[in-house]
Design a protein around this nucleic acid. Structure first.
Ligand SMILES: [Mn+2]
Ligand SMILES: [Mn+2]
Ligand SMILES: [Zn+2]
Ligand SMILES: [Zn+2]
Lengths: 145, 145
DNA sequence: TATCTATTGAGAATGAATATCAAATGCAAT
DNA sequence: ATTGCATTTGATATTCATTCTCAATAGATA
């Protein structure tokens, strides 16, 4: 069994919940889809192969996946929550271009470590962080307006 | 004229817009209210003194204030966008307690500078950033459950 | 004052997200 | 396999933050 499937199964078990068919489909799709996504986009992808998974079930599954630590809610664009799977990926931050909507992922050990240290100073138990920066990407800044 | 008023007036002028009564009331309230707020809460505060300012006008004014650089959208809690005024305040990040909802503001020159440097490396023109960390505050972690 | 915009308040509309509910499913103990 | 029971599901209705519409108003300018 793939590790993420095992982890989700274990997580669900601890809550008295079951790894059902729809939940497996949602999980697999998310872990084969290597991008940030919103529920609607995910629904479209899933629907290509599984016409019987409902939007409601996807909405219901997201918080479970978040609580399990397999995915996180990392952006909000166009009035929609966006998620990404994080199991197997390092923490990173997002540079979001306000011109083209493109997202650049950046890893920074300095920021990770600084946050841990700041949390320690404030006696704050740090679960996770979300860092989004807005600006203009290289491609867009080169275009004449 | 207070500086924020002057700045907003100037900003509006460059866009062919006017610093009207309602806009002044909204601006003043925001700059005398030293907390993060959402539109509904702001509406309630404003309404105490000015029964004739509508919710729609507040919603319409927010993006102008954001674009002017006087305020920013810094959090999303309880399905609502939250703002804070930033003119006259240093950049800072937020530790949000998932138990009590409390927000701890933290300044970090290291993070500020690291972001500037990362943006430079990626040739990304950095406008602003938003860093929210989730976890448990000291008070909450001391409570027995 | 007359004219031309921008602006406003009130209420309607939008739409992402959540809640409801009866039917279906998963699972464990017979 | 069958039963019993809690969980889950799809379809649909509902919520509610935010945006839109529009007729009436206000501001600026000449
Ligand atoms: Mn990412
Ligand atoms: Mn703040
Ligand atoms: Zn771009
Ligand atoms: Zn707390």
């Amino acid at each position: 069994m793939e590790e993420h499937k095992q982890l989700f199964s274990d997580f669900l078990k601890t809550k008295g919940l079951k790894l059902t068919g729809p939940r497996q489909i949602i999980l697999n799709t998310i872990f084969t889809y290597h991008r940030h996504f919103n529920v609607d986009a995910l629904y479209d992808v899933i629907r290509k192969d599984h016409q019987n998974v409902s939007r409601a079930t996807i909405y219901r599954t997201m918080p479970l996946l978040v609580e399990s630590g397999l995915i996180k809610q990392s952006l909000r664009c166009q009035s929609k929550d966006h998620y990404e799977h994080i199991h197997g990926h390092d923490d990173h931050l997002h540079f979001l271009c306000i011109k083209c909507g493109n997202i650049i992922e950046v890893k920074s050990k300095v920021i990770d470590e600084t946050l841990v240290q700041l949390a320690e100073e404030k006696k704050f138990i740090l679960n996770d962080y979300n860092l989004g920066a807005k600006g203009v990407c290289e491609a867009c800044s080169k275009k004449k307006e």
